[in-house]
Design a protein around this nucleic acid. Structure first.
Length: 772
DNA sequence: GCAAGCGAACTTTTT
DNA sequence: GTTCGCTTGC
C-alpha cells in the first residue's frame, strides 16, 4: 500500500477530498462528530508526504490550548516528534505573541512585554476611569473595559472611535480608551485583544514583516473558524495574502484551509462572527466548500434530536447529520420537583449505570448552563461517594494568592508593569496605604514619569508621611534585592525566592484563617508547576532552535526564562482540566455547556432544561441570543454518544427565592417519539400565588411544557402595557413605560425608573412588575 | 492604615 | 446564598 493510500484509509469520500484538495482556499464544514480533527491531521500528513511541504511552512491555528495539544499529539503519532514540535500548532493568541515578541519593538513595546488578562485590564480601566474623574455609576469601568474589548475585536482604534463618538457616553468611552491604551503602552503591556489587533497593525504598517511571515507560512489552517472574530479574520487574511494582490505582492498567497460549523458557534457574545464562515466563499474567491455530514459519534436518536432542535434556527445553510450507528436507546427525560431532586435523580442514575457496568464514571458527563448550578450536584456527589470533577469555576491562576505572586514575577520581568506593581505595593502588608499610593501617583503625573519611576523618587512625593516614605524605600529595596536574584535563577527558584523574601508565605503561615492554609498549598502547587514547566519547556525550545537555525541566532534556547514562564501562564489556562478516562474508571465530569464543546461522552446528562435557566432569562427576549442558546443546546446534545438524559426542576431557588420555571422550549423542539419520560411532571403543590390547571404530560407534541401543579412567577399573566403606563418593579421601584416592542411572551418594554436607575429593557412576561 | 461590615451583583468566557 | 468590593468606623 502506498503512503497515500495509507493516509486515506478509513476516510469517507468528502473526508478524502478535504485531505487531498490543493490550491484554492478550502472551507470544510464539519458537523459535530464528523471526524474533523482526523481530517485536519491527515491533511497535514498528506501535505508533507505527498506534496513535499516542510513542517516549518505549516501554521495550524486553534482556539484552545486543549485543541492545539490534541492536534499536536495526533501529528506526533502520524509524523513524529520533530515534525510536531517544529510546526506551529497553536492558538491565535500564542501565534501572535510569537510574532510580537520578535516585532513589537517597532511599535515601541519591549520584547518582554507583559500580557494582561481580563482581570488586569479591568483593573487598569478602573485606574483610568478614576484618573479621568468619571462617575462609576454613570460610566462603569467594567462596561468600558468590555466595550473597549469589543472595539479592539473590530479593529477600531481610539482615533477612529473618537471621530465617530456622538453621545456623552461614547465621548467618555473614547477618552478612556485612549488613556487606557496609553497606560498599557507605558507599562509595556498588551491585553488579550491587543495581541491580535497589534499584530494586524504590524502587518498593515510594515510590509516587510508581512512578507517575512507570508514566505514562511505557505499553509495556514484554522480550526473552529465559526468562532473567529473580525480581528482574527483580518489576521488570517493578512497572513495568507489575498489572491488579487498576487501581482503586486512578491509572495503568492498561501494555501488556506479552514474548518468550522456555524451550528456550533456559541461565542458570539464575545465577538465571534458566524459571518466569517458564512461568507467564506465571498471573502476568498475560488474557494471550495466540502461538507462533512456523516457523524461517527452518536446514535441516530441523539442526532435526530439535535437536528430537529437546530433546525429551528433561521437562515442556516442546510445540513443534516446522519449516523450508521443505529437508533440506540431513547433519550430519557425526567421532571424533578426541585433542583435537589434533579441532582438526586442524575446521580442515582449514574450510580445505577455504573453499578450495572453499563458505563464507567469517566464516560459520564453532567452539563449545566451556569456554573452556579454545579453546587447542588457537588453536594449529592459528595454524599453518594461517586468520584467527580468539576471543570471550570474558579481557576487556579485566578486565585488571589497566585495572582499576587504572579504580580511579583511580572514586575521582575517588566518593572514598568504598573498594574502588577500597584497590586503588590502593600502585599503583604507593609504600611503603604491608599494615601501613600495616591501621593506617588500625583508625583508621577506631575513629573510625567511612570509610577515605577515615581516610587524611586518618594522623597519628592507631595505630602507623604515620613513613615510611608520609609516603607516605600524598603519596598523598592526589596524589589532590587529580588531583581538581583533573577539572572541565573530558574523560574521555580525565583518563585521560591519571592515567596520567602517578601514574607508572603510566613504571613499566610501565621494566619489562623482556614482559607490561608489552602492558599499555602496552592502556592506549593505553583512552585511544582514552575518546576514542571522548566522540564517540559526546555525540550521544546531545543527542538525549535534546531529547526529555526540561523533565524534564532543570538537567542539562547537553552534555559526557559521568566518571561517564557509568564507567557505560558498568561496564554495557557489550567492544563489538567478535563479528566482523562483512565485506570480506575475515571471520574464523572461536571461542566458548563460551553466547556463541553469539542468533547464527547458515552453518557450525557443535560440538566436544568427550563426556560429561564436554559435558555437563560437574559436571552429570552432577543432572537439572535436565543438562537445562540439553541446552538448551545445543539452542542450539548451532540456531545452524547449513546445515552442522553434531559432533566428539569419545577422549582429552583435562585438568589434565595424560589422560582417556578416552565420546561425549556428546547425540550418542546425534540420530537416526543424520541424521548422516554421517566417522570413527565411534577407533583408539587401549586405555588400560593395562583393556580392554573395542569395538562397531562407526554402527549403528542409539546410534552415538555406541562407542569403538574401549576405555575407562578415565570408563567404569570403578562400585564398589558402601553407607553405612558406607570409600573412598580420589585427591585427598581416606580417607573414609566417608554416603549413596547415584540408580541406574546416576547413582549419587551423599555421602562424609565428615574435618574438613579435609568432605563431598562425588560421582558414583560418575566419581569417582576405590576401595572399601577 | 486597616478590618469589619454592608450592599450590589449574578450568564456563558477557549485567550 | 454567596462572593466581592467598597465604605465606614476605629
Amino acid at each position: 500500500m502506498s503512503s497515500q493510500e495509507q493516509l486515506l484509509e478509513g476516510l469517507n469520500g468528502p473526508q478524502r477530498d478535504a485531505v487531498t484538495h490543493s490550491g484554492s482556499p478550502l472551507l470544510i464544514v464539519a458537523g459535530a462528530g464528523s471526524g474533523k480533527t482526523r481530517v485536519l491531521t491527515h491533511r497535514i500528513a498528506h501535505l508533507m508526504a505527498e506534496r513535499g511541504v516542510r513542517p516549518g511552512e505549516i501554521l495550524a491555528i486553534t482556539f484552545t490550548n486543549k485543541a492545539a495539544a490534541e492536534m499536536k499529539e495526533r501529528i506526533e503519532a502520524l509524523l513524529g516528534t520533530r515534525a510536531a514540535n517544529t510546526m506551529w500548532t497553536m492558538t491565535f493568541h500564542s501565534a501572535c505573541v510569537r510574532i510580537l515578541r520578535r516585532e513589537a519593538h517597532r511599535l515601541g513595546y519591549p520584547s518582554s512585554f507583559t500580557i494582561y488578562d481580563a482581570a488586569d485590564s479591568q483593573r487598569l480601566m478602573q485606574l483610568v476611569c478614576k484618573e479621568l474623574d468619571l462617575d462609576p455609576k454613570r460610566f462603569p469601568p467594567r462596561s468600558f473595559s468590555f466595550q473597549v474589548s469589543n472595539l479592539k475585536n473590530e479593529l477600531v482604534d481610539y482615533d477612529t472611535f473618537s471621530e465617530q463618538a456622538q453621545t456623552e457616553q461614547e465621548k467618555k468611552l473614547a477618552e478612556a480608551y485612549r488613556l487606557y491604551q496609553r497606560r498599557l503602552h507605558e507599562a509595556g503591556a498588551m491585553d488579550f485583544d491587543d495581541l491580535i489587533m497589534i499584530t494586524v497593525n504590524l502587518f498593515q504598517m510594515f510590509p516587510d514583516v508581512t512578507e517575512y511571515y507570508r514566505r514562511r507560512f505557505r499553509h495556514v489552517m484554522v480550526d473552529e473558524y465559526q468562532d473567529t472574530n473580525h480581528a482574527q479574520y483580518v489576521f488570517v487574511r493578512e497572513l495568507v495574502g489575498a489572491a488579487e494582490d498576487s501581482d503586486t505582492s512578491v509572495v503568492p498567497p498561501a494555501e488556506l484551509c479552514v474548518v468550522g460549523d456555524a451550528d456550533q458557534s456559541i461565542y458570539a457574545f464575545r465577538g465571534a462572527t458566524i459571518r466569517n464562515i458564512l461568507e467564506f466563499e465571498r471573502d476568498f474567491p475560488n474557494a471550495r466548500t466540502i461538507l462533512l455530514e456523516q457523524n461517527y459519534r452518536s446514535t441516530q436518536n441523539i442526532l435526530s434530536a439535535a437536528n430537529t432542535v437546530i433546525d429551528r434556527n433561521e437562515g442556516r445553510p442546510a445540513k443534516n447529520l446522519w449516523s450508521e450507528q443505529g437508533e440506540g436507546p431513547k433519550i430519557i427525560g425526567y421532571v424533578a420537583d426541585n433542583e435537589h431532586d434533579e441532582a438526586a435523580f442524575v446521580v442515582g442514575e449514574i450510580d445505577r449505570l455504573t453499578d450495572e457496568g453499563v458505563v464507567r464514571p469517566g464516560q459520564v458527563a453532567v452539563f449545566y448552563r451556569t456554573n452556579a448550578q454545579s453546587r447542588v450536584f457537588e453536594d449529592v456527589f459528595i454524599r453518594t461517594g461517586l468520584p467527580y470533577k468539576i471543570v471550570g469555576g474558579v481557576r487556579f491562576y485566578e486565585r488571589k494568592e497566585i495572582r499576587d505572586i504572579l504580580a511579583y514575577l511580572r514586575v521582575l520581568a517588566n518593572p514598568e508593569d504598573t498594574v502588577s506593581l500597584r497590586r503588590i505595593l502593600n502585599v503583604p502588608k507593609r504600611g503603604i496605604g491608599a494615601r501613600a499610593e495616591e501621593s506617588v501617583e500625583l508625583l508621577a503625573a506631575r513629573e510625567r514619569i511612570s509610577f515605577a519611576g515615581a516610587l524611586r523618587r518618594v522623597d519628592e512625593a507631595p505630602g507623604l508621611a515620613t513613615r510611608s516614605a520609609k516603607a516605600i524605600r524598603n519596598f523598592t529595596a526589596l524589589l532590587d534585592e529580588l531583581a538581583e536574584a533573577v539572572p541565573g535563577s530558574t523560574p521555580a527558584e525565583i518563585v521560591e525566592t519571592v515567596l520567602s523574601r517578601t514574607g508572603y508565605l510566613s504571613e499566610l503561615a501565621e494566619s489562623k484563617d482556614l482559607q490561608d492554609e489552602s492558599r499555602v498549598e496552592n502556592l506549593e502547587e505553583f512552585v511544582d508547576l514552575a518546576r514542571e514547566f522548566e522540564h517540559t519547556f526546555a525540550t521544546l525550545l531545543q527542538d525549535e532552535a534546531d529547526l529555526e537555525g540561523e533565524e534564532n541566532q543570538g537567542i539562547d534556547p537553552g534555559e526557559p526564562t521568566l518571561v517564557d514562564f509568564l507567557e505560558r501562564i498568561a496564554l495557557v489556562a489550567d492544563t489538567d482540566q478535563i479528566p482523562d478516562e483512565d485506570d480506575e474508571g475515571g471520574v464523572v465530569t461536571l461542566m458548563t455547556l460551553h466547556a463541553a464543546k469539542g468533547l464527547e461522552f458515552p453518557a450525557v446528562f443535560l440538566s436544568g432544561m427550563e426556560d429561564g435557566v436554559f435558555p437563560h432569562t437574559r436571552t429570552l427576549g432577543d432572537k439572535t441570543q436565543l438562537e445562540e442558546e439553541r446552538r448551545l443546546a445543539y452542542v450539548g446534545i451532540t456531545r452524547a454518544q449513546e445515552r442522553l438524559y434531559v432533566s428539569r426542576a419545577a422549582v429552583r431557588s435562585a438568589w434565595g427565592t424560589p422560582s417556578y420555571n416552565p420546561a425549556s422550549r428546547f425540550l418542546d423542539e425534540v420530537p416526543s417519539s424520541l424521548v422516554d419520560w421517566r417522570r413527565a411532571e411534577s407533583t408539587l403543590a401549586a405555588p400560593p400565588s395562583r393556580t392554573i390547571g395542569g395538562r397531562p404530560g407526554g402527549g403528542s407534541g409539546g410534552f415538555g411544557s406541562t407542569f403538574g401543579g401549576g405555575r407562578a412567577k415565570a408563567a404569570k399573566e403578562a400585564p398589558a402595557l402601553s407607553v405612558g403606563d406607570l409600573v412598580n418593579h420589585d427591585s427598581f421601584g416606580m417607573g414609566r413605560v417608554e416603549l413596547v416592542d415584540g408580541a406574546g411572551d416576547r413582549t419587551k418594554a423599555r421602562i424609565d425608573f428615574g435618574a438613579d436607575i435609568g432605563e431598562k429593557d425588560l421582558l414583560v412576561k418575566y419581569a417582576p412588575i405590576e401595572k399601577l
